[in-house]
Design a protein around this nucleic acid. Structure first.
Length: 565
RNA sequence: UGGGGUAUAGUGUAACGGUAGCACGACUGACUCUGGAUCAGUUAGUUGGGGUUCGAAUCCCUGUACCCCAGCCA
C-alpha cells in the first residue's frame, strides 16, 4: 500500500480535506491517528476493505498512525475465530498497525472508573426499569419520553448500586446504568441512553472478570480517546450518535477526537450485511465464509483477488456521504488491471477436444518456448511440450462456422500458440454423431508460430499436449445473485430467491500444461484466452483444483450475444 | 406528522462564484502469436421551481425524492 499512497493525491476526498485542514490549523499537535475498529462477530467483507483503506490510507498519506482495535464489548456475539480471521484479512490487505493491535476490552477498568466519575457528577444513574419499560419510557420518534422513576436517586445510592452491579449481585437485565441527559431530546440517542448492562457472560478475552459490559455508545468514544485517535471515522448510521459521543467526552473532560461519517459501500449483485452473509453460510447456500462467491475478504482471496486490486478499487470508488451502489464491473476492471500485469500465463483446456496432427512424427516431443508474461519481460519464458496428440478447446472448433467465427473449422488454418500453423483436414465422429476428434496437418515451416512466407491466420488457439497434460478440476463462478439488487424480491420472497443457479459450475476432466504441476494454493494464473484463475486450497499433490477469478474480456461472446438477439 | 443526513451522464466520482472534467460501462475503429492487453474516438449529466449575480452544480428561498434513528446490538 505504501507506494500507492505515499503521495497525497491532488484531489482530496472530503475526509482527507478535513484532515488536511486540521493539520494546517495545527490541530491535534499536527498528529494524524486513525483506526479500524471491527467488532469480532463476523468475517470482514469488501465494505470493510473500504474502511480499512480509508483509515490506513489517511494515516499513510499524512504520516500518521493507524490502530487495529477490536470493539469487543459484547461477549454474547464475539468469538476468537473472528478475531483471528480479521487480523489475517487486515494484514493481507496490507494495512500495517505496527505494534498497535488493541482491544476495547483492555479499557474496561478505565471505562468503569469514568462511569463512576459521571455518577459522582450526577450525570449517570442506576435504573431498575426492565428492557420493555425502558422502551416505553423512551417515547417515540415524534413524542417525548418520560423520566425514569429511578432517575433521581442520590449519588451515594447510585454509587452503591453500580458497585454491586459490578460485583455480580444482580441478575441479567435487572438494572442498567444510564446517562442522565434529556428524555425529551429530539434525538432519541440522547434520551438517557444505557451505558452498562448486566451480562453474566464469559468474554473471549476477559473471561469472567466482568458481569457488566459497556454499550457501544459509551465505550466507543472512550476507546478512541484513550488511544489518542484524531479522526474517528465511521459509517453514516452513527451520525445520530455523534452528539452523544461528544457529550460523554465533554462531561468527562477528556481528550476528544473528531468523529466523521461516510457512506458504506454497496456493490451490485451481492449482499453486504453481516446478517445475510451469516445466513448464506449457516443455511449452506455457499460453501463457507471463504466461498469464492462471497464478498468476504477471505472469499475474494480464495477466488483469486489480489490485495492490490482491492486497494485500487477502494481508491477509485471515493468517499462520500450518500448511499450509492458501485457496479461490480468496476471491481472486475481493477482486478483484471492488476492480474494482467502480475499473472504468469499458462495454457489450460477446460473442455478438451482431441486433435491428432497426422503428419507429425509418432513419439516426437518438442519443447516450445512460451512467454510467461508479455506485460513483464522479466518473467521470462518456459518450455511447453508439443507432440502428435493434443487437446484444444471444444469451443474453438465449429463444423459450420458462422461468418464472424474465425477459429478452427474444416479446411481452415489457424495457429497453435507458440507452436505451429495447423489445418483441419478431417472431423471424426462417434456413433452418436458427436465430434470425437479432429485430424489436422501442421506446417513444419511455421515452428514457433510464424510463417516464413508471411501468410497470416485469423486465430491463435491455446492447446496442451495430451501425453503431458495434467488433469484438473476447474470451478467456474458467476454472480451469486442474478439481480443487481438482490434485496429486490417479490411479495413473500427474499434475497435468497435471487441466488443464481449458475453461480457455481464445476468442470472436471480439464487438461492443463505441466508447468502447473507444483502450484500452491492461492497461486494466481492467467489461462491464456480464458481468464484469470487461482489455485484452490483443495488442491492436493495429484489433484489440481482451480477457481476462475474473472474472465478475460470476451469480444467473441459479445458478438455471439448480438447475433442471438 | 420529531430529529439527523444526502441529491452531478447508465454507474462511481471531480469542479470550493468563472469552459461541467475523470473513471467504469456501452458503442466505433486501429493494432495484435491471447477475439486479451494497448491506442484513438463516440455516447451521455448538475432533483423541480423561483431568486441574487456580468456569470450559479456552487449563494438565497421554496418544493420533491431517498437514507438513518424508538436494542440492555455495534
Amino acid at each position: 500500500m505504501d507506494n500507492e499512497s505515499q503521495m497525497v493525491p491532488e484531489r482530496l476526498d472530503f475526509i482527507r480535506q478535513m484532515v488536511a485542514d486540521d493539520l494546517e490549523a495545527g490541530k491535534w499537535d499536527r498528529r494524524v491517528h486513525t483506526r479500524f475498529p471491527p467488532e469480532p462477530n463476523g468475517y470482514l467483507h469488501i465494505g470493510h476493505a473500504k474502511s480499512i483503506c480509508l483509515n490506513y490510507g489517511i494515516a499513510a498519506d499524512f504520516g500518521g498512525k493507524f490502530n487495529l482495535r477490536f470493539d469487543d464489548t459484547n461477549p454474547c456475539k464475539e468469538e476468537q475465530e473472528y478475531v483471528d480471521s480479521i487480523i489475517e484479512d487486515v494484514r493481507w490487505l496490507g494495512a500495517d498497525w505496527q505494534d498497535r493491535l488493541l482491544y476495547g476490552s483492555d479499557y474496561f477498568q478505565q471505562m468503569y472508573d469514568w462511569a463512576v466519575a459521571l455518577v459522582k457528577k450526577g450525570k449517570a444513574y442506576v435504573c431498575d426499569l426492565t428492557a420493555d419499560q425502558t422502551r416505553d419510557y423512551r417515547g417515540t420518534l415524534t413524542q417525548a419520553g418520560k423520566n425514569s422513576p429511578y432517575r433521581s436517586r442520590s449519588v451515594e445510592e447510585n454509587l452503591d448500586l453500580f458497585a454491586r452491579m459490578k460485583n455480580g449481585e444482580f441478575p441479567d437485565g435487572s438494572k442498567t446504568l444510564k446517562a442522565k441527559i434529556d428524555m425529551s431530546h429530539p434525538n432519541i440517542n440522547m434520551r438517557d441512553p444505557v451505558m452498562y448492562r448486566i451480562l453474566h457472560a464469559s468474554h473471549h478475552r476477559t473471561g469472567d472478570a466482568w458481569c457488566i459490559y459497556p454499550m457501544y455508545d459509551w465505550a466507543h468514544g472512550l476507546e478512541d480517546s484513550i488511544e489518542g485517535i484524531t479522526h474517528s471515522i465511521c459509517t453514516l448510521e452513527f451520525e445520530n450518535h455523534r452528539p452523544l459521543y461528544d457529550w460523554f467526552l465533554d462531561e468527562l473532560g477528556i481528550y476528544h477526537p473528531q468523529q466523521i461519517e461516510f457512506a458504506r459501500l454497496n456493490l451490485t449483485n451481492t449482499v453486504m450485511s453481516k446478517r445475510k452473509l451469516l445466513q448464506l453460510v449457516k443455511e449452506g447456500h455457499v460453501r463457507g465464509w471463504d466461498d469464492p462467491r462471497m464478498p468476504t475478504i477471505c472469499g475474494l482471496r480464495r477466488r483469486g483477488f489480489s490485495p492490490e486490486a482491492i486497494r485500487q478499487f477502494c481508491k477509485l470508488i471515493g468517499v462520500n456521504k450518500f448511499n450509492s451502489t458501485v457496479d461490480y464491473a468496476l471491481l472486475e476492471h481493477c482486478l483484471r488491471d492488476h492480474l494482467n500485469a502480475a499473472s504468469p500465463r499458462v495454457m489450460a483446456v477446460l473442455n478438451p477436444l482431441k486433435v491428432v496432427i497426422t503428419n507429425y512424427p509418432d513419439g516426437q516431443v518438442e519443447e516450445m518456448a512460451a512467454v510467461n508474461n508479455p506485460e513483464n519481460p522479466a518473467a521470462g519464458t518456459r518450455k511447453v511440450p508439443f507432440s502428435k496428440v493434443l487437446y484444444i478447446e471444444r469451443e474453438d472448433f465449429m463444423e459450420e462456422p458462422p461468418k464472424k467465427f474465425f477459429r478452427l473449422a474444416p479446411g481452415r488454418e489457424v495457429r497453435l500458440r507458440y507452436a505451429y500453423f495447423v489445418t483441419c483436414m478431417d472431423v471424426v465422429k462417434d456413433a452418436a454423431g458427436n465430434i470425437a476428434e479432429l485430424r489436422c496437418t501442421y506446417d513444419p515451416a511455421t515452428r514457433g508460430g510464424d510463417a516464413p512466407d508471411g501468410r497470416k491466420v485469423k486465430a491463435t488457439l491455446h492447446w496442451v499436449s495430451a501425453a503431458h497434460a495434467l488433469d484438473a478440476e476447474v470451478r467456474l463462478y458467476e454472480h451469486l445473485f442474478t439481480k443487481e439488487n438482490p434485496d429486490e424480491a417479490e411479495e413473500g420472497k427474499t434475497f435468497l430467491d435471487n441466488i443464481s443457479p449458475d453461480s457455481l459450475q464445476i468442470v472436471t476432466g480439464c487438461k492443463v500444461e505441466p508447468a502447473l504441476k507444483n502450484t500452491r494454493p492461492l497461486d494466481r494464473w492467467q489461462f491464456e484466452r480464458l481468464g484469470y484463475f487461482c489455485t484452490d486450497p483443495d488442491t492436493r499433490d495429484n489433484s489440481l483444483v482451480f477457481n476462475k477469478t474473472v474472465g478475460l474480456k470476451d469480444t467473441w461472446a459479445k458478438v455471439q450475444q448480438k447475433e442471438q438477439a
